[in-house]
């Protein structure tokens, strides 16, 4: 009987320890979220192309934006603004990294302008988020990051308003991007509910 009790206690303690959220300082926190192993960054490789989907919790956005800012009221205000939303970066590049994807397979400046216009104004129509397997959300905010061809990687920043009174994402989130330019079809990335529960706590 004693053995049973002690084993049950051991399992209970082990379970409690496992369910505790990690605590990380700013640089480690960002590194953790950018590490593919933890499920917040998904990379899909399609014949010479790489699409990276990065989920950015509010704390991560705030950390990146407020480099050096120590004013708590500004930070709190920003956190409040980000409440009830989910943000992602969708990056794409040629695996070789030799040519900018914006210039890939183009024959004229008009084609470049058309492609650029697509990513500035139309690509958002081809992005959606399936929340909890049932709600399909469309971007409330979209931005194509212009890197002026300085890096071979292009990034689309996209934000969604969560359904209901949800403050932070708690359900599975499937980000879907339909590539209409490079002929790579529908690309999906799933951010699991179980991983979302394990987002470390940020220590300031």
């Amino acid at each position: 009987m004693k053995k049973v009790v002690s084993r049950s206690l051991f399992l209970l303690i082990l379970g409690t320890l496992c369910s505790c959220r990690k605590e990380l300082k700013a640089p480690e926190y960002v590194k953790y979220l950018q590490d593919e192993r933890y499920g917040f960054r998904k990379v899909v490789k399609i014949e010479g192309w790489e699409y990276a989907f990065q989920y950015k919790p509010a704390e991560m956005i705030m950390l990146i934006e407020s480099k050096g800012v120590k004013n708590d009221s500004i930070k709190n205000k920003r956190m409040k603004e980000l409440e009830g939303t989910a943000w992602f970066n969708i990056s794409f590049r040629l695996s070789s990294g030799k040519v900018s994807s914006m210039r890939y397979n183009l024959s004229s400046i008009e084609d470049y302008d058309k492609r650029y216009d697509y990513f500035l104004n139309h690509a958002k129509k081809h992005i959606r988020l399936v929340y909890g397997g049932t709600d399909t959300l469309f971007p409330m905010s979209y931005l194509f990051e212009n890197n002026y061809n300085l890096t071979p990687q292009e990034t689309m920043i996209v934000g969604f308003r969560l359904p209901g009174e949800m403050r932070t994402p708690e359900q599975n989130m499937q980000l879907i991007y339909e590539d209409e330019i490079f002929g790579n079809g529908i690309i999906k990335a799933l951010f699991k509910k179980s991983d979302l529960k394990r987002i470390p706590e940020l220590i300031y």
């Binding site: 490789k45 399609i46 014949e47 002929g183 790579n184 079809g185």
Partner: peptide, 13 residues
């Protein structure tokens, strides 16, 4: 043609 190409592009790897 587009469906065939894009689907096999994904299926092969």
């Amino acid at each position: 043609r587009e469906i065939n190409e894009q689907v096999w592009k994904r299926l092969n790897p």
